[in-house]
Design a protein around this nucleic acid. Structure first.
Lengths: 187, 187
DNA sequence: GTCTATACCCAGATAGAC
DNA sequence: GTCTATCTGGGTATAGAC
């Protein structure tokens, strides 16, 4: 693999595991098996490299989600498919993790892909719910924007509960609880 | 205020804002208006100080939550009261924030109060839901443990969405969406 | 209890040779 | 493009004086 590519992928992994403050250029170089000079030749510094890594992760995350969103089935089936997709629960969300990092949030170039990703996910979920309403799957009283936010929040919060417990169980519980609530309104 | 007390409180604040890796002994000393020697006289180092701060925050968080949980009203009213309590949404959760910090999660002494806090919250919510079921407020089919996890997750995830958007709005949407889903099953 | 001095290592980056 | 040398600053802690 190309050096640039290895640098970006290594940075993606390290940002996921240790966040922005917790990730040093040195650690990236070691993980990417690239030298100091090589890294600074291709990127102006840590921030620019992080920008490339975050943008890449944002694109990958959206592509993975869209696979569930655009599948076959009713709205409930596609939402359940998204919620129950195979996930590395204890590692958490690549994007959500970065929202607690003040240095990331302070830099508009780093923040933008994260903001955009969650905006997109909520909008996409809201569309699916709206479709479900039109087909009579959900009652007209169900607010698509609110429900979409609730679904996205359960996933992000599920990761937090799982990490706190060092177990995927609370995540699974939260997801199943949500699915049952959604089935409740659908009936 | 006593020096020890100022050190603990300053550490609580800094952990909230910047996390464990992002918080230096020096920054704590400045915030607490305490000297280097003073800090190391009272605490063996950063880890011990963080332990005291996290334990303190855990106790405060549980006390604040219990105020809503033990109030008057139906289960739904108390849960809504908890969800809609006045919160500094963009600052996020003191405890939830730390779950992404690998150094905190790797140290059992730092992890324990966090684990315990979320375990307690979920258990307490499950009790309230179980009460609601007994009073006929909720159907017998509602799973208390799952629903409790869902509620806790919406809060934690709501914070993540809010920080990503740099706006409290997604948090409010997620909470209202959840409340409507709960009202749906209650009917 | 609190202060200052000191120490060591790492973060983050620049410079110039190859 | 990649390497090594070098630099400034900060993180984290210890030592010993007051």
């Amino acid at each position: 693999m190309e050096t640039v590519e290895r640098l970006i992928r290594s940075t993606q992994d390290l940002l996921w595991e240790r966040g922005y403050v917790g990730t040093s250029p040195k650690a990236i170089q070691v993980a990417a098996d690239a030298g100091q000079g090589s890294m600074y030749h291709h990127f102006s510094g840590k921030a620019e490299l992080a920008k490339a890594a975050i943008e890449r992760s944002a694109a990958e995350l959206q592509a993975a989600a869209e696979e569930q969103f655009s599948g076959d089935g009713t709205a409930t089936e596609r939402i359940s498919g998204y919620l129950e997709r195979d996930r590395d629960v204890l590692k958490g969300c690549r994007m959500g993790r970065l929202t607690t990092d003040p240095d990331v949030m302070a830099d508009p170039r780093l923040r933008a892909p994260i903001d955009e990703t969650f905006g997109w996910i909520r909008a996409r979920l809201a569309e699916i719910i709206a479709e479900g309403k039109q087909r009579g799957e959900y009652p007209g009283s169900l607010d698509a924007g609110q429900t979409a936010a609730t679904i996205a929040a359960v996933l992000q919060g599920g990761y937090v509960l799982a990490r706190a417990a060092d177990s995927a169980e609370p995540f699974e519980l939260a997801v199943q609880g949500l699915i049952h609530l959604l089935e409740g309104v659908a009936a």
